[in-house]
């Protein structure tokens, strides 16, 4: 039966995507939180309206080297060190697109497993499935658009 075959494929994929996500998340967390020269989220606590987090000297040097001596060290410019580069950005954008697809498949397939367990009504199951995968599709389009056009 076609549906049971696709379920087996998805069950298998869920484990593969999960394993991939462990490694991709390590990279993601490292780059966004722990790498002093490119991390956009620092340990700084910002409580005031309009205030921006402060960045390390390495990050400031990187931004000024890339965007000129008068470039401001803002979160956007810190991230654009990676995403506005014509060559380097291809790798990061490629990583982000793959990450987005894998995370959405893993998350929404898992969500569908949960929904199928609690929704007994067949029509309700179809509606939940259509609705949740529609949300995933919208997020995929938004995510692809954001990643591809960022800095270009």
């Amino acid at each position: 039966m076609a549906s049971s075959k696709s379920n087996a494929v998805n069950w298998f994929l869920h484990r593969i995507t999960g394993t991939f996500l462990v490694f991709m998340l390590i990279t993601h967390f490292w780059v966004q939180h722990y790498d002093h020269s490119v991390a956009s989220v620092t340990t700084d606590v910002v409580a005031q309206e309009g205030e921006l987090p402060t960045y390390s000297d390495e990050a400031a040097a990187g931004v000024k080297a890339k965007f000129g001596a008068d470039a401001e060290v803002t979160p956007y410019n810190v991230v654009m060190q990676r995403l506005a580069d014509p060559v380097y950005a291809v790798l990061w954008k490629g990583f982000n697109i793959l990450f987005l697809i894998v995370a959405l498949h893993h998350g929404f397939y898992g969500l569908n497993n949960v929904l199928t367990d609690y929704i007994r009504n067949p029509l309700g199951r179809v509606m939940a499935r259509v609705l949740s995968w529609s949300v995933a599709l919208v997020l995929l389009i938004i995510g692809l658009y954001s990643v591809i056009t960022a800095g270009w």
Binding site: L139, I142, S146
Partner: peptide
Amino acid sequence: LIIHVWGLKSLT
């Protein structure tokens, strides 16, 4: 994930 991807629209 939904909140995160939605928020990152601001990358543009």
